[in-house]
């Protein structure tokens, strides 16, 4: 099979007809990008491995039902991002670290203390709500256009913009670029 010459639509058709090399080619074609997205969102190689495997096997099982409403790459990204979001939410509910008694902050933190506790970008991203974090990862880190991110997340473009705006604002505060207001 001359797989490299086929576009995604043709590969999906070949897959439906039972060509085992079609899925191999799809993984070769999209695997690196999916891997990059998973690592970018999850920031953990092991989690990314599991997420990518889960997403690709889900795609494999559902490929017969792929209708082509969106580009195959977008469809694959959507599956993967949903898997990542599930993982982030799960991890967030799992994380329950005790707060040390001696470090309970005042309602209004000391500005000098705030200035010396700037977080790095990855730490700050991890503190964002999952939806904002994923939107910023896709748009600001991965470089997807807002419209593409909206298709991947299956939400309106305005929602992506809103999530990005809120997320950036919070990041600016967490990173110490903007003084927090209460």
């Amino acid at each position: 099979m001359s797989a490299p010459a086929l576009d995604d639509v043709a590969l999906v058709a070949a897959h439906r007809e039972g060509d085992p090399q079609a899925f191999v080619e799809l993984v070769r074609r999209h695997g690196d990008r999916l891997w990059a997205v998973a690592v970018g969102i999850l920031r953990n190689a092991e989690d990314a491995r599991e997420a990518v495997q889960e997403a690709l096997l889900t795609a494999f099982r559902r490929l017969d039902g792929f209708r082509g409403d969106a580009a195959l790459g977008t469809w694959l990204h959507r599956i993967l991002v949903n898997v990542c979001i599930d993982r982030l939410r799960r991890d967030r509910t799992r994380r329950a670290e005790p707060w040390p008694d001696h470090d309970v902050p005042d309602r209004r933190p000391d500005p000098s203390h705030t200035a010396t506790t700037r977080l790095d970008v990855v730490q700050a991203l991890a503190l964002l709500p999952v939806e904002q974090r994923v939107a910023i990862e896709l748009v600001d880190v991965q470089g997807h256009p807002v419209a593409d991110a909206a298709r991947i997340l299956d939400v309106p473009t305005g929602t992506v913009k809103s999530r990005c705006a809120r997320g950036r604002l919070r990041l600016a505060e967490l990173l110490g670029h903007l003084r927090e207001e209460y």
């Binding site: 690196d32 690592v39 990855v122 991965q142 470089g143 950036r168 600016a172 990173l175 670029h177 903007l178």
Partner: peptide
């Protein structure tokens, strides 16, 4: 200015764009 600085910080994260040098490939 703060948002610009934040954007620069985000841009400083390892590039994830496929095809760029240093782009991690799927193991």
């Amino acid at each position: 200015a703060a948002l610009d600085a934040t954007r620069r910080d985000l841009a400083g994260l390892p590039s994830r764009s496929p095809g760029e040098p240093g782009q991690p490939s799927m193991p």
